[in-house]
Computed example of a mutant assay.
Amino acid sequence: MENRIDFVNWLDPDMSIQILTCLDDLSDLLRVTCVSRCWRQYVIANGLCRQLCLRMFPQLSKVVHVVEQRYGTKDPAEVGSSNFMEWQNLEREHRAYAFLARGCTTFPIRDLISEPICASSTDNYPEESIDNTLEPRDVVAQRASYWSSKGNSNPAEPEMLLYKLMGDLCVITEVSIQPFEAYFQWGLPIYSAKAVRFRMGHPKSPVDVPLGESYKDYENKFIWTYTSQEFPMAQENRLQTFKLPEPVLCIGGFLLIELLGRVQRQDMDGLFYIWFAPSSLFNCSFLVFMVNCCELFQDQCASTLIEYFVILAIIFSHNVYVTDQL
């Protein structure tokens, strides 16, 4: 038989880690753990799943602790030596980050906007409210359906639109927006913005944000873990897709759309407006990962199937967010 060398045991530990960190696919890293018990222990002991997860989604760098709760088994903290407990913690972290990375790179889902929260301004509320951006119809009750900002004499004045997503952890790849063409005005003006920017994050504390309120009441109550570059917007009546440079993990489930600058002045009052067409966000392309899950696995000691709940607690320096069980 041809001689083979186990490079993990043969090479310097730092060199072995450099080789394994070249893997950029979670499936490949998990296959490494199946080669042998030694390799599995090496991957877990060096936190390679966590390192890969942080490279894929830098927003996770704020996670300082992972909690995994099992029902039907004893808490590892209750039994065993300190070395055993430390190894249990490493295994728990490995499973959690492997599960998180797998969930964040699978299950493509569209239409992930749960509900509109508020806009920085609305010209005629509720007829021209932010709710219309998710309305699939162009005309509602014999009236054109769209969102309109208040008019402003300053073309540089920005506008904000705040949305709640379906999940608390979502991977966003692109967002599509369509400016509204006022077909009922002379010249068919298109009220687009000059540029658009996206922020993603979570509230500083659990708050119930009522619909229809101004964003100014809540702009200091959120922490934005990601801010995109500015994307120029064309003054055209079409769905415009803005693809992010890389998939972004939204922690907290809130999306803020910043509309930077105005290009269209309304003839009747001489003010600049921004209007959005219905279903502007209806075609957003997302990947979603539901944090909590229920899996069945074989209990080797009792040889019975027991429920295995994984709960990730994302603990920040100022707050704790724990998902509910499914």
Rank of each mutant, 00 (worst) to 15 (best):
G167P: 06
P13T: 09
R4S: 10
N124S: 10
D217V: 15
E181I: 12
F198T: 15
I314F: 03
D6I: 04
P116S: 07
S129R: 04
L169F: 09
Q300E: 06
I113N: 00
Q88W: 12
G253Y: 02
F254L: 05
T33C: 05
V320G: 04
N220S: 07
S280F: 06
D12C: 13
I113E: 00
A234F: 12
V66F: 07
D14Y: 14
I306G: 04
L26V: 12
Y183I: 08
L296C: 00
Y308T: 03
P278L: 00
T133Y: 08
L90H: 04
G72V: 01
N124K: 14
L161G: 05
S81F: 10
C284S: 15
L259N: 00
F254A: 01
H318L: 15
L161M: 11
F272M: 04
A156H: 11
G80L: 09
A45I: 12
V288D: 02
F309E: 00
C34R: 13
K150A: 11
S149Y: 05
E219Y: 05
A119Q: 11
D111H: 08
T33F: 08
S214T: 13
A119E: 10
F289S: 11
V310Q: 11
E213Y: 07
P116F: 03
I257M: 13
C301G: 14
I257D: 09
I117M: 04
R197N: 08
A45E: 15
R31W: 06
L312E: 04
W147T: 04
E230V: 12
K194N: 10
F272L: 00
G187H: 01
C284V: 13
F231K: 02
I130A: 06
V248Q: 02
Q41Y: 09
N3E: 06
F57E: 01
T21P: 09
V66I: 14
L312M: 06
E128N: 04
S129A: 05
I109Q: 05
C22I: 14
L256N: 12
V63T: 13
I109L: 05
F316A: 12
R70G: 03
Y321A: 09
S36R: 03
P126H: 01
Q69E: 13
F7T: 07
S214E: 15
C250P: 02
V79T: 12
P278S: 01
T304H: 14
Y321M: 10
F184L: 10
Q185C: 09
P58L: 03
Q59G: 07
D28N: 10
A141H: 04
Y42D: 15
T323R: 08
E2L: 09
S82W: 10
M15R: 06
V175T: 05
I190Y: 00
P179L: 00
R102L: 10
E159P: 02
K62C: 14
D24M: 07
P108S: 00
V248W: 00
C284Q: 11
F7A: 07
R55E: 00
V291N: 02
M85L: 08
A98S: 14
I17D: 14
A195T: 15
C49L: 06
A313P: 04
L60V: 02
L23H: 07
G80R: 11
R70P: 01
V263T: 02
I314E: 01
